[in-house]
Amino acid sequence: ASVAVIAAGTQGNIFATSALRSMRFLQILRMVRMDRRGGTWKLLGSVVYAHSKELITAWYIGFLVLIFASFLVYLAEKDANSDFSSYADSLWWGTITLTTIGYGDKTPHTWLGRVLAAGFALLGISFFALPAGILGSGFALKVQEQHRQKHFEKRRMPAANLIQAAWRLYSTDMSRAYLTATWYYYDSILPSFRELALLFEHVQRARNGGLRPLEVRRAPVPDGAPSRYPPVATCHRPGSTSFCPGESSRMGIKDRIRMGSSQRRTGPSKQHLAPPTMPTSPSSEQVGEATSPTKVQKSWSFNDRTRFRASLRLKPRTSAEDAPSEEVAEEKSYQCELTVDDIMPAVKTVIRSIRILKFLVAKRKFKETLRPYDVKDVIEQYSAGHLDMLGRIKSLQTRVDQIVGRGPGDRKAREKGDKGPSDAEVVDEISMMGRVVKVEKQVQSIEHKLDLLLGFYSRCLRSGTSASLGAVQVPLFDPDITSDYHSPVDHEDISVSAQTLSISRSVSTNMD
Rank of each mutant, 00 (worst) to 15 (best):
G391D: 03
P372T: 08
D388V: 09
P316A: 09
Q397K: 06
R265L: 10
Y185S: 15
G409E: 06
I393L: 14
D377V: 10
D374V: 07
S171A: 00
E321D: 11
E368G: 03
T369R: 10
T294P: 08
S171P: 08
I393F: 15
Q397R: 12
K367M: 07
R399G: 00
L179P: 09
S242Y: 08
P372R: 02
S192C: 07
K367Q: 06
I163N: 15
D388A: 12
K449T: 15
M259R: 09
V507L: 09
D322G: 15
Q297L: 05
I163S: 13
M389R: 14
A166P: 06
Y373S: 03
Q473L: 14
I354V: 12
R371P: 07
V350D: 12
I393M: 13
H386D: 11
K394Q: 07
L357P: 11
S171Y: 06
D374Y: 07
F308I: 05
T369I: 04
R411S: 06
Q381E: 12
L360P: 09
G405V: 03
D374H: 02
S333C: 13
W167C: 13
K394T: 01
K449E: 10
R313S: 01
L370Q: 05
M389V: 13
R505L: 08
L390V: 11
P372L: 05
K449R: 15
R392L: 10
Y170D: 08
L370P: 10
L179Q: 11
F366C: 01
K394N: 09
D374G: 09
L357R: 06
W300S: 13
T172N: 02
R168C: 04
L169P: 02
E368A: 13
K376T: 07
R411W: 08
D388E: 13
R406W: 11
Y373C: 05
K394R: 04
D490E: 12
T182I: 13
D173Y: 09
K376E: 03
Q473R: 09
R168S: 04
Q397P: 07
G420R: 10
K367N: 12
L450M: 12
L396P: 08
K416E: 03
D374E: 07
M432T: 13
D484V: 08
D377H: 15
W167L: 14
G405C: 07
A362P: 07
K394M: 12
V507G: 15
W167G: 11
K412E: 07
G405D: 06
D377N: 03
I163F: 06
R352H: 09
E368D: 03
I403S: 02
G239R: 06
D173V: 05
K412N: 08
L453P: 05
S463P: 08
P372A: 10
A165P: 03
I503F: 13
Y186F: 11
S171F: 02
W167S: 06
F366S: 03
L198R: 09
E321V: 13
L454W: 12
I393N: 10
P316H: 11
R352P: 01
E380D: 12
S468G: 02
S431R: 11
S319F: 10
I503L: 14
Q402P: 08
Y184H: 08
D374A: 07
Q397E: 12
R392P: 06
T280A: 08
R207L: 11
R399P: 04
K394E: 09
Q286R: 04
K367E: 12
L450P: 10
I446T: 08
L370R: 05
I163T: 08
R364W: 04
Q473P: 01
K416N: 03
L390M: 05
H202R: 14
A181V: 04
F366Y: 03
G407E: 08
I257F: 10
R414G: 10
L450R: 14
Q263L: 04
I393T: 08
K412T: 06
I446F: 13
R392W: 11
I354L: 01
M389I: 12
I403N: 11
I379M: 12
M278K: 14
V296G: 14
D374N: 13
F359S: 12
T369S: 14
K358T: 04
L360Q: 09
L370V: 08
M389L: 08
F302C: 08
P268T: 08
V287A: 09
E330V: 10
R364M: 08
G405S: 08
T369P: 01
V400E: 06
R406L: 07
A166D: 07
R392Q: 10
K332E: 15
H486N: 14
L390P: 08
L396Q: 09
P345H: 11
V216M: 01
G405A: 14
R168L: 04
P372S: 04
T172I: 05
S383T: 07
W167R: 03
K412M: 05
R168G: 11
S395G: 14
Y373D: 08
Q381H: 09
D418N: 08
I393S: 07
Q381L: 14
K449N: 07
R392G: 05
D377A: 11
P372Q: 06
I163V: 09
S301T: 12
P475L: 14
R168P: 08
R462S: 15
D377Y: 08
D173A: 06
D173G: 09
E326Q: 14
Q164P: 14
E285D: 05
L396R: 12
